[in-house]
């Protein structure tokens, strides 16, 4: 897959992992595991990118006597997911056009 496309896809996947409730690093990796293998370093880079783009915010909270970082989606982040869904709809109709059966010559 084209790297630019993959990068965009990964961004949306991580946003989707936190779209309903705040989550933390290891939980995100576990939630995504059935769909795609994501390494810690890759996740770190994505989270940094999303934070810089203000698509999510980070807060540190105490958990079991240690600190853990929680990631919360912003409205802008939710918009990004919606954009992705709309883009994908468009892509699907193009896909149908590309893979349509030849009716004229049948």
């Amino acid at each position: 897959m084209d790297t630019q496309m993959k990068r965009g896809l990964l961004d949306v996947c991580v946003l989707a992992a936190i779209q309903y409730e705040d989550s933390y690093g290891y939980q995100i990796i576990k939630d995504m595991k059935p769909y795609m293998e994501l390494s810690e370093s890759t996740l770190y880079t994505i989270l940094k990118r999303l934070e810089a783009a203000k698509l999510l915010t980070v807060r540190t909270a105490e958990h079991d006597g240690r600190l853990r970082k929680y990631y919360q989606i912003t409205d802008k982040g939710k918009e990004r997911i919606e954009e992705f869904k709309n883009d994908w709809k468009e892509m699907m109709s193009i896909y149908q056009f590309i893979t349509r059966e030849d009716k004229v010559n049948e």
């Binding site: 933390y24 690093g25 290891y26 390494s39 810690e40 770190y44 240690r66 600190l67 853990r68 970082k69």
Partner: peptide
Amino acid sequence: ERVTFYSEMIDDRIEEGMSEEEAVSAIG
């Protein structure tokens, strides 16, 4: 920041029941 990130990842795995060694090797 990166070191803290990996430290958290290892702790979360240990919390889930892995041994320290296993948690570290799971990171890669």
